[in-house]
Design a protein around this nucleic acid. Structure first.
Length: 330
DNA sequence: AAAGTCTTCAACCGCCGGCGA
DNA sequence: CTCGCCGGCGGTTGAAGACTT
């Protein structure tokens, strides 16, 4: 404490950089490199502190910076790495060529974090949010298996607007099964996918710790996030119902082990005949195609993210409904 | 069209650790 | 060992643009 911020000294400029300043900084660094950030601004003729120059260069002007939207794979990587590393943005950035820690941090805070919250996942711990878990534990108490009491519970909790009472009943009915058979959900997830012969022999493990090992990140087999554990499912699944599902949750879900790798999900051959996507012109879904410019179904322009998220959300709705066989409840 | 609200992200701030004197 | 400098990091802010009413 006590040390004054470098920019407060000598009336140095603050705030947004002008194109002229950018040019000066770029020219200087391209000619001389950046030896000493403290002396650089003076040498480059900039009324900025060294710190500001370093930031501007590393976060914006550096030639190898990749600008634009994060790709599907990048988003997946961020979620996976964050689940292991936490807010180590610079370490995460080191695994994403062309992306800066600042950019990743911003993207996390403005996009991914919100999605996880929406899904009932605590972005800090990557575990189910305690408030939702509490609901599950309440549901697990035997007296509440009476559907009418579930209704009472939902009224009590004021969750009617969010959770369909029928689905609360479903949750209540599933929960004892889960308790009796800890593998209940994972078996159902796997089993359901395997119902489609085209999924057979295609499914990689839901969780691929070796992906992390390949990244040379210390990976603990105890990392709860990497286990498609049943608790996550039981608390999250209420959020996938009704209109709670939001676009873009796919990547997050995939990271929580609810789905296989994108090869199995994205392979158009693996889509069921009745799939909504068959009516979509974009049959060749792949992460790459999802990121390419395209025209929406109605000929209107749809942004890449819209399209990607639309696909993902539809896919998940279908899969989730199949998996839970919840049609009768809807 | 205007006002209000929300979202995004570039930039700043304060702190920390490494290093050399 | 201590001190000061420097680079780097993560949290936070606020201007600007987007969106909604």
């Amino acid at each position: 404490m006590g040390r004054t911020a470098c920019c407060k000294k000598n009336g140095l400029r603050k705030g947004p950089w002008t194109p002229e300043e950018d040019q000066k900084l770029t020219d200087y660094i391209q000619k001389n490199g950046y030896g000493n950030w403290r002396t650089l601004p003076k040498n480059a003729g900039l009324q900025r502190c060294g710190k500001s120059c370093r930031l501007r260069w590393t976060n914006y002007l550096r030639p190898d910076i990749k600008r634009g939207r994060f790709s599907f794979e990048e988003e997946e990587t961020i979620i996976q790495l964050h689940s292991v590393l936490g807010n180590k943005w610079s370490t995460i950035a080191a695994r994403l060529p062309g992306r800066t820690d600042n950019e990743i941090k911003n993207y996390w805070n403005t996009h991914i974090r919100k999605r996880l919250l929406r899904m009932g996942i605590d972005p800090a711990t990557h575990s189910p949010r305690l408030d939702l878990l509490d609901l599950s534990s309440i549901l697990s108490s035997s007296s509440l298996y009476n559907p009418s009491q579930v209704d009472n519970l939902s009224r009590l909790l004021g969750v009617q607007a969010v959770v369909n009472p029928e689905l609360l009943r479903l949750a209540a009915s599933l929960y004892p099964s889960q308790r009796e058979n800890p593998n209940f959900f994972s078996e159902n997830v796997q089993g359901n996918q395997l119902c489609n012969p085209q999924f057979q022999n295609q499914l990689p493990p839901l969780v691929q710790p070796n992906q992390l090992q390949a990244l040379e990140i210390p990976f603990s087999s105890e990392t709860h996030v990497m286990d498609p554990n049943v608790e996550q499912f039981s608390s999250n699944f209420t959020n996938f119902t009704q209109n709670e599902w939001q676009p873009g949750d796919y990547a997050a879900l995939q990271n929580y082990g609810f789905y296989g790798s994108e090869q199995s999900i994205m392979d158009p051959n693996s889509l069921s005949e009745n799939s909504t996507f068959q009516s979509n012109n974009s049959n060749n879904f792949s992460p790459a195609s999802l990121n390419s410019n395209s025209t929406g179904i109605n000929g209107s322009n749809v942004s890449n993210e819209d399209e990607r998220e639309s696909y993902c959300s539809n896919m998940l709705k279908l899969e989730m409904m199949e998996m839970l066989d919840v049609n009768q409840f809807m």
